[in-house]
Design a protein around this nucleic acid. Structure first.
Lengths: 346, 346
DNA sequence: TTTAGCACTCTGGGCACCAGAGTGCTAAAG
DNA sequence: CTTTAGCACTCTGGTGCCCAGAGTGCTAAA
């Protein structure tokens, strides 16, 4: 898409990106000519860099400073220049160790842990969306009486999730009545995704049942509410303090805006969900203003999705300044997603 | 305990505290003499302030600056000088509105919401410990088969909590076998607090049962684990970004240390638990170095406890710089705790 | 005992200055 | 035509200096 650069310009752009990501300082022509063993003098590089600036890939913070990549520059780098080197054997080991420690765990813990690992492996902030229950299909509903007043509603999905909720019953139901209602509901709901269980469907069922049993009012309210509730999903954060290490966040005001964002779960959810629509299968890189949300227009968000039994359940993301080690983050995220898929499906 | 000051010194100390809390600027003698309508010249105040400094209640950041309270000064203020004025009718309304919005809620949501309200009403960071399950008493255990491989273990406490967990069963049990096991367990465990259900007790029960049924191994492992898990309790945070508004946290390094602390749930739990031992019933104020933990020795932590049916279940806290509006925080917290107690008990 | 007056001290903002880094341009060399 | 050396120019960031302002402590008078 971007007009292709010639070999030499590409090399220089790559050099600038790599250098700038590492040092966070504008990169001068001299640095490029020395450190990247292309047999050219700084003057030549200088000319090329002036071209690259004109083309929109580089920019100078002020005259007589080195150059830094623009958003377009990073984009070109990610699309054409970056090579995804593997992790070192050491790191790989560390990563899989910290991911697979303690086999037996609740899904929530697995995800929480993943967030921590991801953030510490990338030195950025990580966000992981909890499993998107609503994309699972309805499998079975059970209502289990606990005592005189309360029952436990259990919802089982085809992906193996089990959601449950305690409800107060206004009146008691006999075992057989309960059985009737439950089997009716199961029959009607089987195979639908949770998404498809709309309020109107519930109302319809309610009308049907009311002819027979007029006592389940509260149970229905609660079923409905419990489904609605599932639409707001937890987002797990890891390494929120990592942004403080980034020089682009030495301004307290920026920090505040960022942390404020982190406190707003629904917003994070929306941000993650936006990207997941783009590509269900691979990793998505959103650089700077490519992001919709105002507060992260100076950041890069890299996301991937995880699945159970080939059903996409949630999104994992890494958020940091545009000056980010793209190749590393992507590599680590690939590994992590693989691992998540694997350990959730078992 | 502290050697009592004379009336005038108390007035001056109070004036300095109030002024400093409001402005975050060292308070000079002139300010005190003017704003607090005691008919004294700045020179007189100056002498008294010099005395207060010698006594350890005030300190100067540098010669020729105003004074600020020391930890001792705050302590004296809190113990002897502070008056707990009520909230204005308006505020009171706002507070109870935001607390009681949407009646039907899970306990987790109630607490999460409380944390948010508390932080925004005080402009500080709030921490609320989730309900301390382990202090509840065991009431009833149920095991409900879901399908061929899985069962749902439900644990009901005397405080009305219901914990549940899905377990995999290696082998199937008949209804009657299951019933036997469950009623045996209920009989043995009834009335014990969760704290008292130790590993050794579980092992004992296990031995007993193995004579009859050798198949419940996994169920037991999971019961045990699920109990252990309860010991690490969630801490809900609200308003972590509020510390950024405090001038004492304009240093990025301090911010980092603070936020780092906030990410370590077990530590927060420990910090909260420490204070709860001190007084079960009223509000505890820990000023500066009175706090055990190194990272909050420049902060003040104010805590209270909430209960269900007169059983203490958790701790709520407000954390901020020592320069904090003590009276306001304490008042708000009283209200909040009352409300929590009330809404949890119903 | 209180107060007015005064000399003294410390901070923080503003300003000038300078070294350092890096540039763009020109002219020569390949 | 491309590359390179040279040079003048520009901008930043740190340093040192100055000064107003705020507040103090002390002394002497009320």
């Amino acid at each position: 898409m971007a007009s292709p650069l010639n070999e030499r310009k590409e090399q220089i752009l790559r050099a600038v990106v790599i250098n700038y990501v590492k040092t966070a300082e504008p990169v001068g022509s001299r640095t490029v000519s020395r450190s990247h063993k292309m047999g050219l003098s700084s003057a030549t590089i200088r000319n090329e860099m002036a071209d690259l600036e004109e083309l929109g890939y580089l920019i100078q913070p002020h005259t007589s400073a080195g150059r830094i990549p623009t958003q377009l520059g990073y984009r070109y780098y990610v699309d054409n220049l970056m090579d995804l080197n593997d992790l070192s054997a050491d790191e790989d080991l560390v990563l899989s160790n910290s991911l697979s420690a303690e086999k037996m765990r609740e899904i929530e813990q697995i995800i929480n842990n993943s967030a921590r690992v991801l953030s510490s492996a990338t030195n950025q902030t990580s966000l992981i969306m909890g499993p998107q229950f609503k994309k699972s299909a309805f499998h079975q509903l059970r209502i289990l009486p606990l005592d005189e007043k309360r029952s436990l509603v259990v919802l089982i999905t085809d992906t193996g999730f089990i959601k449950n909720k305690v409800i107060d019953m206004q009146q008691q139901l006999s075992q057989t009545e309960l059985h009737q209602v439950v089997s009716y509901l199961n029959q009607k709901l089987y195979g639908l995704t949770i998404d498809q269980v709309t309020t109107s469907l519930i109302n319809e069922l309610k009308r049907d049942l009311f002819r027979r049993l007029e006592i389940l009012e509260q149970a229905f309210i609660l079923l409905e509410e419990s489904l609605k509730e599932e639409k707001q999903i937890r987002v797990f954060l890891g390494g929120t303090t990592n942004i403080l290490n980034q020089p682009e966040f030495k301004d307290v005001d920026k920090i505040r805006r960022m942390l404020n964002l982190f406190e707003q779960e629904p917003l994070l959810f929306k941000i993650l969900e936006d990207t997941s629509s783009e590509s269900e299968n691979d990793i998505v890189v959103r650089i700077g203003a490519e992001n919709e949300h105002e507060d992260i227009k100076e950041c890069t968000l890299i996301t991937g999705t995880y699945k159970i039994h080939d059903k996409t359940l949630g999104t994992v993301g890494v958020l940091g300044p545009t000056r980010m080690d793209y190749s590393r983050v992507i590599t680590v995220m690939r590994r992590l997603v693989d691992h998540l898929n694997h350990s959730l499906s078992s």
